[in-house]
Structures are given as structure tokens and as C-alpha cells.
């Protein structure tokens, strides 16, 4: 393919663990082919060549937690024809959104001896809270096969085939018997977005919701089923408050199980 027809791609990092961009480097068999099919202009984790925009596609990892980053994401958006968020941090705020339910001053003081050196926002927010997003790929971490599908779809000019069903569908496809029914193991699979391949139930544990809420998730009904299995309020509160704590259905459900005197 001629150089000028290859789409120009940039990969950006905000508050995150680097795991979702690592998924691209984890495509060991496809990496060189991908690097041939697109023109990677900006990917600081992998290359010292950092070229200015405009870019055809920006892949964005991480959430916005500082004023500087709130400004930077607007710059990224302005330089990008299409912006795709990758992972739970960029799509829902990530585990660091637990601060949204606490006093951030208290968080800073718990970690740093000199809080005055630390600049941070009171909340960790997804990219979509700041700029328009063209596609959100879920997961903590994202699934590299889904990432390749998104990139392939872009190259072909079609919509990515990313199903928005629940993890239960994946369990059935995988042939895993239901851990809730067969073993009484509490599982967030019925309300969680598919994409991981239903790994946890295949390993004998309940899904812990790292792909965030599925479409039309009935979290209240699932919470009832957990209660019937013996889960207490504290367990339910924590179960919905992890890597996608700020995603609306999970936020509401965790608040429904907060201690009465503690609205968080």
C-alpha cells in the first residue's frame, strides 16, 4: 500500500496502567503486519519518533484526573479524525474513579507526605465526559482480538463487530456451566459486557465485572440473586464498585448497597 494511503494512527495515555496499549504490543503475530498497514505516528510507549498531527485515528487509554489532562484530551480530539477509547479507564474512569466517592484531599494525604506537591482533580472521568468519542472498546484490560477487529474495521471502513451482549452468552459459547447455578458462586456475568471470553467462570470463579455494564443490565435483580446466595450488603457494595465503578448502572447499584449513614 502506498505510504500516503495508510491511515495515520496515534496512541495516547492518560491515567492508566499501560495495559491496554500493551495489548497492541501483545499482538506478537500481527504487530509487524499492523505496523505495515497503518502509519503509527505517535506511540510513546513503543517509539521515540513522535510526530505532530493531524491523525486519522487516535487510540486513547486512561482517564482524565488532572486539569492538564483535561486540556490535553481536547488537543488530541482536535488533532484526530476519529477517536477511540480503549479500556475501562478511558471508557468509565477506571479503578481510580473510586476517588469520586471519597474526599480526594484525604486520598492525597494517605499516600503523600507533602500533599502540596500533588495536583489532581477531585474525580477520575472517562474521555467521553470531555470530548466526543467515536467508539468505546471496553475491558480492564481490553481484549487484543477485539482491538485488532477495531483496527481492521477502520482499515476496511466498516463498523467494528463488537457484540454488546452479556458475559453469559460467552459462557454458553465456551461451554462453561453456570457457576451461579452449578456451584452457588456469585457472578456478575449476567450484567457484564462481553468481550473477555468469559475467562473467570472457566477458571471456577464468578465474573467480577471488569468489562463494565452490559446493555440493559438488570443489576437489581442480580443483586437479589446474590443475596439469596448469602452475599451481604458490604459484598454487594464492593462488587459493583471496582474497575467500572463510575459506569452509571454499576454506580447506582453500589449506592443501593452503601451503609445507610454513608451515602458513598
Amino acid at each position: 500500500m502506498a505510504e500516503r494511503t495508510r491511515p495515520i494512527v496515534a496512541v495516547w495515555k492518560f491515567a492508566s496502567c499501560d495495559g491496554c496499549q500493551l495489548s497492541l504490543l501483545d499482538c506478537e503475530d500481527e504487530l509487524l503486519a499492523v505496523a505495515g498497514a497503518v502509519d503509527i505516528a505517535y506511540f510513546a510507549e513503543a517509539s521515540s519518533t513522535l510526530r505532530p498531527g493531524p491523525y486519522d485515528v487516535s487510540l486513547v487509554e486512561g482517564s482524565v484526573t488532572t486539569e492538564h489532562d483535561a486540556e490535553r484530551i481536547r488537543m488530541v480530539r482536535a488533532a484526530s479524525k476519529r477517536l477511540i477509547t480503549i479500556g475501562a479507564c478511558a471508557t468509565a474512569g477506571g479503578i481510580q474513579s473510586l476517588r469520586n466517592f471519597a474526599d480526594v484531599k484525604d486520598y492525597v494525604a494517605a499516600v503523600y507526605a507533602s500533599p502540596e506537591y500533588i495536583r489532581t482533580l477531585e474525580t477520575s472521568t472517562p474521555i467521553s465526559a470531555h470530548v466526543p468519542v467515536d467508539f468505546e472498546l471496553r475491558g480492564c484490560p481490553i481484549n487484543k482480538h477485539q482491538l485488532l477487529e477495531v483496527i481492521s474495521a477502520l482499515l476496511a471502513g466498516r463498523k467494528p463487530q463488537i457484540p454488546n451482549e452479556s458475559v453469559c452468552v460467552s459462557c454458553k459459547q465456551r461451554g462453561t456451566s453456570c457457576v451461579m447455578v452449578a456451584h452457588g458462586t456469585p457472578c456478575l456475568g449476567p450484567v457484564t459486557h462481553a468481550g473477555c471470553g468469559a475467562i473467570c467462570p472457566a477458571y471456577g470463579r464468578g465474573c467480577y465485572g471488569c468489562y463494565g455494564p452490559a446493555e440493559a443490565a438488570n443489576t437489581a435483580s442480580l443483586a437479589g440473586a446474590w443475596t439469596a446466595l448469602g452475599a451481604d450488603r458490604r459484598t454487594l457494595h464492593r462488587a459493583f464498585r471496582t474497575f467500572n465503578a463510575a459506569a452509571e448502572p454499576f454506580r447506582q447499584e453500589s449506592e443501593a448497597h452503601a451503609e445507610p449513614h454513608h451515602p458513598g
Binding site: F14, A15, T65, T66, D69, G94, I95, Q96, L98, R99, A102, D106, Y107, V108, A110, V111, Y112, I118, T120, S124
Partner: peptide, 8 residues
Amino acid sequence: PPRFFEAL
């Protein structure tokens, strides 16, 4: 940006 794991 700090993510405050020890606090959360």
C-alpha cells in the same frame, strides 16, 4: 497522574 492505590 497519581491514582492513589494505597488510599483506595
